[in-house]
Design a protein around this nucleic acid. Structure first.
Lengths: 249, 249
DNA sequence: GAGTGGTCTAGACCACGGC
DNA sequence: CCGTGGTCTAGACCACTCT
């Protein structure tokens, strides 16, 4: 029975925000702010529901969303506990640009190439179009603090995005896609490494033979269309992939 | 109204398996087997509940689990649709051993070292113990088809696992942990690349300077304890990380 | 045995999308 | 307008854990 000083929750039934969401947000804030000691019990669901004037399923829905985020753990016969470890976000469908910006790295982009051309073998297969179909090809160099970090080569179905003007210099591809109304759904990624060729090294300010991180990604929207296929090269000396995994159910 | 030939679902109320789980499993099987055309509608929840003799929340729970897996998409006012693209599993808390075995690669392990020693700086910090605390250190070489694939160096809290005998030669660390009753909860990973040193190259049958994939991982159980800290090196020529990402809600 | 989460029911009203 | 999923209620019984 861990009845610490319990945070107050304020629920607004007039708000368009769902009650379970209001609760989960406030619970998450309370946990991250430290109102609950790690490992402490949350108090049983029935009582919590009664205290808040909610039904148990609604409270459960709020708790479940935090369990899915990895912040809470349920144990039958025991209760719901706050996880000790700090959980950061799992790997997301985010663009390098946003990642760098979030890290305070002041990203910049130099567009090296922007053409429409017939899709070759691998690209056609990845985009799911017949070979020779016209597709958009964009090559970019991504910089942070003025230093090159990655070389990005992306292919998109023609007509999906209007990339006129300098938009690509100012933001990431994912953000542009979302702004166009595309609902990003999933992506298939492969991360590997290889040695830089001479020209690649020159672009990225690395000697030939330097280790590079490679990432290939095919992104799908929620109707299953391929939205983008990218082949990226990262300077291993300046970039690494960093993320959190949660155990499947 | 897409009332194709609808698969038959058989629900066993006497089974200890939850009804929503029985349904979601059969739905998933039907989808993967192709009984539903990609993009086709699943039929509305109320009717489906009535047809199966279940309540709507139960049917929703089954559907939701498949939405979370990325197999289905819900659209208000439209219905629940089967996603077009083939969704594979997202990156999991799995060990290299299991991954290789699943890929039919006949993995083997050579234990290079297995000691108990005081934790140095980085290791102590990662495991969350005071510097100098005795911890277990295991170094292994992982082979597939007789060829070296990765060099694995892991540190564990002392006393967590009994690694006597040849168990480490025959299975992965994660499986051993799970068998001991540890509930894996989450892991923090960093994937990068660097050039092989001379001795590393020798171990992995690569020339010095060859690109290697690096992975550092700290694994937590559901009480927040650190269960394992690993620093791994993969031959870039023989291994890459391959996974699926789902958009966050 | 007592207390917890896990599952399930049979309804209800609302918000949004397409017609 | 209608049909869809989104949310919510007020109960119920079961399975598991701990004492």
């Amino acid at each position: 029975m861990a009845t610490h000083q319990y945070p107050r929750f304020t629920l607004d039934r007039g708000s368009p925000v769902p009650l379970y969401y209001q609760l989960s947000q406030q619970l998450e804030a309370a946990i991250e702010q430290g109102s609950f000691a790690p490992g402490s019990l949350l108090g049983n669901e029935i009582e919590l529901a009664g205290r808040l004037g909610l039904s148990r399923p609604t409270v459960r829905q709020a708790i479940q969303s935090l369990v899915d985020k990895g912040l809470l753990v349920r144990r039958r016969g025991v209760g719901t506990q706050v996880v000790h470890s700090r959980v950061r976000r799992p790997l997301e469908l985010s663009s390098l640009y946003d990642d760098l910006e979030a890290a305070g790295q002041r990203p910049a982009t130099r567009v090296l190439r922007h053409t429409t051309e017939p899709a070759a073998g691998q690209v056609a297969a990845a985009l799911g179009v017949p070979e020779g179909t016209e597709v958009v090809r964009v090559e970019r160099l991504r910089l942070a603090h003025g230093e090159p970090v990655a070389y990005l080569c992306n292919h998109l179905p023609a007509g999906l995005l209007d990339l006129q003007g300098g938009v690509l210099e100012e933001t990431g591809l994912y953000r542009l896609l979302r702004m166009t109304g595309v609902t990003l759904h999933s992506a298939r990624q492969t991360i590997g490494a290889r040695a830089a060729t001479g020209p690649e090294g020159e672009l990225l300010a690395e000697p030939a033979g330097a280790p590079l991180l490679t990432m290939e990604r095919t992104t799908f929207d929620d109707t299953g269309r391929v939205v983008e296929f990218g082949a990226h090269l990262y300077r291993a000396s300046r970039y690494s992939f960093d993320f959190q995994l949660l155990a499947r159910s």
